[in-house]
Computed example of a mutant assay.
Amino acid sequence: MKKFAATNIRGKPLQVCGTSPMTGFFRDGCCNTGHEDAGMHTVCARVTAEFLEFSKNRGNDLTRAFPGAAFPGLQPGDRWCLCAARWLEAYKAGVAPPVDLDATHEETLAVIERSVLEEHAISE
């Protein structure tokens, strides 16, 4: 599997999103993407209880563990590479979780406007 260039939405090197639990389509801790990543898991977010409930109601229960896939399930506060389309859907529903712009892949900009992501930037 080949990854695209690891650049964030600011045009700088993509930073690590999260390693506990290990995130990313390639399970490398980064929101890297490539042709195999049909879901475009490029948005680095700090998930919230509201977002997790929203995702569950849309058929993707991210709180449920999948031991066979080494996925422990997410809890509010965990950092995770979300599908750009799901994050945008959550944004339109008013429950988008905060985003780490330095760890969000530039390919996200094909789906979500930079200004929208900046409005939801994690301030740490």
Results as ranks from 00 to 15, higher is better:
M1D: 08
K2Q: 10
F4M: 09
A6V: 02
N8E: 03
R10L: 15
R10N: 06
Q15F: 10
Q15D: 09
V16A: 04
V16F: 02
S20L: 05
P21F: 08
T23V: 13
D28T: 07
D28S: 06
C31M: 00
C31A: 01
N32V: 05
G34D: 02
E36N: 12
D37L: 10
A38F: 07
G39C: 13
G39I: 07
M40D: 08
T42V: 14
V43D: 00
A45R: 00
V47A: 07
T48G: 03
T48Y: 01
T48S: 14
A49I: 15
F51R: 00
F51M: 03
F54K: 10
F54D: 11
N57H: 03
R58P: 15
D61W: 05
L62G: 14
R64M: 14
P67C: 03
P67I: 06
P67V: 11
G68F: 12
F71G: 02
G73T: 12
G73H: 08
G73Q: 05
L74K: 01
Q75P: 09
P76I: 11
D78F: 06
R86C: 14
W87N: 10
L88H: 10
Y91N: 10
K92M: 11
A93V: 06
P97I: 12
D100C: 07
L101C: 06
L101N: 01
D102Q: 12
A103T: 12
A103C: 09
T104D: 01
T104E: 03
H105K: 01
L109I: 15
A110F: 15
A110M: 13
I112C: 06
I112M: 11
E113N: 15
R114F: 14
H120R: 14
H120G: 08
I122E: 02
